Computed example of a mutant assay.
Amino acid sequence: MTSASATNEPIRVFQTLEHACGYYADRTARNLVLDPVSPALPQLYGRALERGFRRSGGHVYRPNCPSCRACISARIAVERFVPDRSQRRCERRNADLELRVQPAIATDENFALYRRYLAARHAGGGMDDPEPDDFDRFLACEWSPTRFLELRRDGELLAVAVTDVLPVGLSAVYTFYAPEHAPRGLGTCAILRQIALAQSNRLPHVYLGYWIAGHPKMDYKARFHALERLRDGVWRTQ
């Protein structure tokens, strides 16, 4: 991959060592990572999304596992999106929530919500006792075009959708929410609000990261109409 900036210098691509897979206990994983200190990285980020990469903290990566190709990049074509019956119910259930688009800045309020979410959803998984530095490193970095999409009810913060905003679309980096309000379907609501925001700003796609067929943690992505998957370098609807 080469730089789109005026320097037109190539960007280095690194390959990580094999490590434990986050989705299957009996598999190992490996990633390709774009040089995190390259000055070209901010300009290349949008093109990298289109090629199946994703951002975590200051790293832009994509899976490159030696014996597994289960992780498939997925995005929603927002012009063709039509919510299904369940998603319309979710919209009505959360009609009382106000969306606020905020800078990606850690506060006592959003960090406390993040800790509560991880303690409830990922207990014992190694992420459930984060420090403020962990929060900053995971969700944003100096160059990333990140916004915190807050969902509030009467001022109370119920959810945050960490979202990168680029000309190629929105990238849904991570969403965390108040665990006691899980019946609201706040994860689905966050994606619906991201789609609406992309539509209002005439952005073509909402990138959802990786989808794995048949994996219980990934099934929700396949329920979104107009989902495109990256296969053999081509975005396909099936």
Rank of each mutant, 00 (worst) to 15 (best):
T2S: 15
T2H: 14
A4I: 11
S5Y: 00
N8V: 03
E9L: 14
L17I: 14
E18R: 15
A20T: 13
Y23A: 12
N31V: 12
L32Q: 05
L32H: 03
D35Y: 03
V37N: 13
P39K: 05
A40L: 06
L41D: 15
P42K: 00
L44V: 13
G46K: 06
R51I: 12
S56R: 09
G58N: 13
G58A: 15
N64D: 13
P66N: 10
R69M: 13
I76G: 01
I76M: 02
V78D: 01
F81E: 01
D84N: 07
S86R: 06
C90K: 04
R92K: 13
R93H: 06
R93G: 00
A95W: 00
A95K: 04
L99P: 01
A104N: 09
A106R: 04
T107H: 07
A112G: 07
A119Q: 14
A120L: 05
H122Q: 06
A123Q: 08
A123D: 07
G126D: 07
M127N: 05
P130R: 12
E131G: 00
D133F: 07
D134K: 01
L139M: 04
E142H: 10
T146Y: 10
F148D: 01
R153S: 11
G155T: 09
L158Y: 05
L158P: 03
A161F: 04
A161G: 13
V162N: 05
D164F: 07
L166P: 02
P167V: 01
V173M: 02
A182I: 12
R184E: 05
G185M: 10
L186K: 14
G187L: 10
T188S: 04
A190T: 06
P204H: 12
L208R: 00
Y210D: 07
W211M: 06
W211F: 12
Y220M: 08
R223C: 01
D232F: 09
W235M: 13
T237N: 08
